[in-house]
Design a protein around this nucleic acid. Structure first.
Lengths: 365, 365
DNA sequence: GTGAAAGCGCTAACAC
DNA sequence: GTGTTAGCGCTTTCAC
């Protein structure tokens, strides 16, 4: 049996092995083993090796076994670039990864990426991250698309007025959105989203169950459909129980400071006993105001956030928060991606997932 | 001028354009424009187009301009797979992205990835994420390496006993570590790290400046060189000021619960007035204990964490924390990667960066 | 400065 | 079931 060792010297692949082309190489820079090397060692044609890798069912059991052994012995792995060139695929999913938001509790996208990496692996994909360009939001997409560097995109920033989804649709580029097409109900691209309104309904019901009747809402500005959707979860639940909402809602920027200020005003003017917030960031603002006023979260005033961030989890006493099933979302995104890339008929372009409520000390005595 | 529109229909690229091979295609599935298409339109050979893209200096100004215009008109972008195959490079940097840690404040890796994506872009690289395999820690690396899917790796989990760095070195695979080779001082691979001891010295000095003399340490178990390094920052500073350390140190698991318990014990037995912690997670544990005991962070007891996590930033009053310069670390990692991949002589395999201290209410009155 | 030829490693199509 | 042929799109020689 040929003894072969693979590796790279200063970035150049080397191998000590008698090559298929007859050259004898002892740690002289050469390529990793190719299909041809495996074919020669196994005594079959290159195509048979290819079939052994991609369509094993086509081979006779003994041939397959022989080829498998040769692959094992040589440590062969198909060259990605060659396969990509030939099949016009890359097994890569592109996703724009915007800079981290500091000073907030927002990290849902990071958690989503973790899940996406895991879910993609199962489907044979890897995740390629690319940065955004503030001046030209489609630049990164355009570059990757035209150089056929990725098979598809996952788009996560689906806010109002974001041109990416429309642009990708226009380019007929395969993509799945994590987030509903808020600004375009007629959009036909596949998407996966979490039902924020349902999450806030859970939160509000929970507070009602705890005996609260004056439940305040702190959310985002009116031009955020996502924020308005979450807000509707609060208002519907309040109305369903015949509870007042007047003077109990506030719409602010998504910062701790804004949340703190909104909470102070609401406490002074409307005396709520509980707060439901559109984000953990805003909820931390509320907790900040409670801290200043020496009010105990959970005991004096209840607070619920949204996203079940690390902040919610490690805050002393804990912050009750709506948790998005991001692992599940990633799985659904990959599922949609696979359907898209195998040209399966799109039955259901939109998948809406139900969040859960992580109960902690800020809302339970 | 030829009018050309690019796109994909159901994932297949189409173009309405008279092809270089003479076929007239009107939204019939074909490939995106190739070098040959550009060459034809510009009236030059394919190699000249290649040169225009990769070695523009070789062309005469007018030729270059003509080719550039053709590239622009066709919306040409070199096919990545073809280029990768030919050049045996991928412009991809692989990094293992382990599942997110919940229930902790740890998110430094996420922040690092954000920075890495930005820094890589500048050098013409993209970041490819792959999941870990608990049963076989080198599997993901091995697969990508043998299929020549990435040019290099960034290794972030350099804890004791981690086989990846040694394995990659053995495979002669190009990689840069974010984190020192704690277990192998003789390691020759490039690495970038943050001086944790210096960070903790900053923190301890700060507390000393605030008038504290009984400063406790809560760190990790002794088998963590990273933890012991940070701990040394505390002990050296204490000794330098002639302050006692006996009974003021605790080594525990990196969880909120452990931090809380350690703080309770230390408070009962050694009456410290300040805590320095190896992580924000442990610091949150301390804050939890203070909360239970109705002690005010900053006023009654000072607390400093490590990592300047979102948690530290949004905690009411704020948690003072050592901040790692992760943006800078990413830049240094990419720099080392470029040197490695262009076979520049490695002058300085290790880069140690200085952290800063983010001052907040938990340590300042 | 520009062009012609070759080939990277793989798989689709077809022959046997 | 296996082998042969061709070619994906690019860059690297080497002529001219």
């Amino acid at each position: 049996m040929l003894s072969t060792r693979l590796g790279t010297i200063k970035g150049v692949h080397v191998r000590s092995h008698v090559r298929s082309d007859g050259r004898i190489t002892g740690h002289i820079p050469v390529s990793p083993p190719t299909l041809a090397d495996v074919a020669e060692l196994a005594g079959v044609s290159r195509q048979t090796v290819s079939n052994a890798v991609n369509n094993p069912d086509l081979l006779r059991a003994d041939t397959l076994e022989r080829v498998r052994r040769a692959i094992e012995d040589l440590g062969y792995s198909p060259n990605r670039a060659a396969r990509n060139l030939r099949t016009r695929t890359s097994s890569l999913i592109g996703m724009r990864f915007a800079p981290a938001q500091e000073g907030t509790a927002n990290a849902a996208i990071d958690r989503f990426v973790h899940s996406l990496v895991e879910a993609s692996e199962v489907a044979g994909y890897h995740v390629l991250l690319f940065p955004g360009d503030d001046l030209d939001p489609v630049r990164g997409y355009d570059d990757l698309l035209r150089s056929t560097a990725v098979d598809a995109f996952v788009v996560t920033d689906t806010w109002l007025g974001n041109p990416q989804a429309a642009w990708l649709t226009d380019q007929r580029a395969p993509f799945v959105a994590f987030g509903r097409p808020w600004d375009d109900p007629g959009a036909t691209h596949p998407w996966v989203d979490v039902d924020g309104a349902a999450g806030i309904r859970l939160a509000t019901e929970h507070l009602f169950d705890q005996g609260h009747t004056r439940i305040a809402w702190i959310g985002w500005r009116k031009d955020s459909p996502l924020g308005e959707d979450r807000r509707s979860g609060w208002s519907t639940t309040m109305h369903a129980h015949g509870l007042p909402t007047t003077g109990l809602a506030s719409r602010v920027e998504d910062t701790v400071q804004s949340g703190a200020e909104a909470a102070a005003v609401l406490l002074d003017e409307s005396a709520p006993t509980a707060f439901v917030c559109a984000s953990d960031t805003l909820a931390m603002g509320v907790l900040h105001t409670l801290w200043i006023r020496q009010l105990a979260p959970g005991r004096d005033i209840a607070v619920v956030g949204f996203d079940d961030s690390q902040v919610a989890q490690v805050f002393p006493g804990g912050l009750t928060s709506v948790r998005q099933p991001l692992e599940q979302a990633a799985v659904e995104v990959v599922k949609a991606l696979e359907a898209l890339l195998t040209h399966q008929p799109v039955e259901n372009p939109g998948v809406l997932l139900k969040p859960t409520l992580a109960l902690r000390g800020s809302s339970v005595v």
